[in-house]
Design a protein around this nucleic acid. Structure first.
Lengths: 187, 187
DNA sequence: AAATTTTTACCGAACGTTCGGTAAATCAAT
DNA sequence: ATTGATTTACCGAACGTTCGGTAAAAATTT
């Protein structure tokens, strides 16, 4: 390969950062180029289908991240309460304690909503399934486990909105504690 | 006023619909003009500060709506459980049973995030205060009431995201029931 | 091992389109 | 005749995208 100026992993990470903070419609090619350190034309060399392909690459990266970090932790051999704590710690890290927006939500609006609804739905479903599995290990019956897992994702997403709009990261952290308590209520 | 082609209320309602479905960055003046039935220049006549003024007008409208519909119901003289049911019914109506996005969330991303964070924060705070007041009437102590009210808004926002991404409006409706149950748990 | 060809990665400059926004003319009502 | 709402026509700027071309690495041939 000829002189890779910026590693693909780094490029995708920078692209994610832009989409995360300004959304899909708000992300201009100029900004994406500046953030990656590549020219617009170079981005098109790596992503021949343009902005849409960049966002798709970001979503693939997120899906992998969910599988490798969250799902793995949730399905480890550790005791259920330990797995829960580890998973919520990862969630806390990912969103920088409520200060960072969720790139999935950022790609759920405007033009992006139609383009990426399905892959995002798959990621959400993976997320919920992983937490539902944990809930069952806590002793919840199948239906209740599914509902608690959905409620977990709902509250993470909702609390991120509130935390950022009110500029109170504590709202996010409080919600993570509430979620933990809900799981532990069956122990 | 001479020769008003479309009533201002109708214009604002149409503008809200566009922002709601495509977000702020995704809403072009062409689309806003088409939706209102006015030409771009006519919109600039009514909103000299352009798109930003249109979104501000929409937010003012939403703030009024929250105060007139939600807050009034929550502070009526009816028994607390009745007020809760009425309020949640209104929420259900506003979002068409989980099919409609929240315009406040749509205006919380991209360019809009910086422009409208504060007015949206005010609306959120009003929302939470109204439900916190109700929670106190249900017998919750001040701190718990505040947390339950925040959790209510968090879950409404979060469940709207899931319901629309998964195309399962039931997720939203289930969440409204969960919220109702949480209030009633103190009765 | 050296020379040649092919591929890869990148960039500057421009493409056509659409953006948000404006000035002047038209229309309708007082 | 004046006033205010609307429209037509238009603007510069920015948009996402494409193109022509350069330089270096990899593959192939000698």
């Amino acid at each position: 390969m000829a002189n890779v100026k910026v590693e693909q992993d780094v490029v995708i990470d920078r692209l994610m950062g832009v989409f995360q903070s300004v959304g899909y419609d708000g992300a201009s090619l100029s900004e994406l180029a500046a953030a990656t350190g590549l020219q617009k034309a170079s981005l098109y060399h790596r992503f021949p289908n343009g902005k849409q392909a960049m966002a798709t690459a970001v979503l693939d990266h997120v899906a992998e991240l969910i599988n490798n970090r969250l799902a793995d932790v949730l399905q480890s051999s550790a005791p259920a309460p330990t797995r829960l704590t580890n998973a919520l710690t990862i969630v806390h890290q990912i969103y920088d304690g409520g200060r960072l927006a969720c790139v999935l939500r950022a790609l759920s609006h405007g033009t992006a909503a139609r383009l990426f609804r399905e892959p995002i739905a798959v990621i959400f479903t993976t997320w919920v399934a992983a937490f539902a599995h944990l809930a069952r290990d806590f002793g919840f019956e199948a239906g209740a486990a599914q509902r608690l897992a959905e409620s977990t994702l709902i509250r993470v997403q909702g609390s991120l909105i509130l935390a950022q709009t009110l500029q109170q990261p504590g709202v996010f952290e409080q919600t993570l504690h509430d979620i933990e308590a809900d799981f532990l209520s069956r122990q």
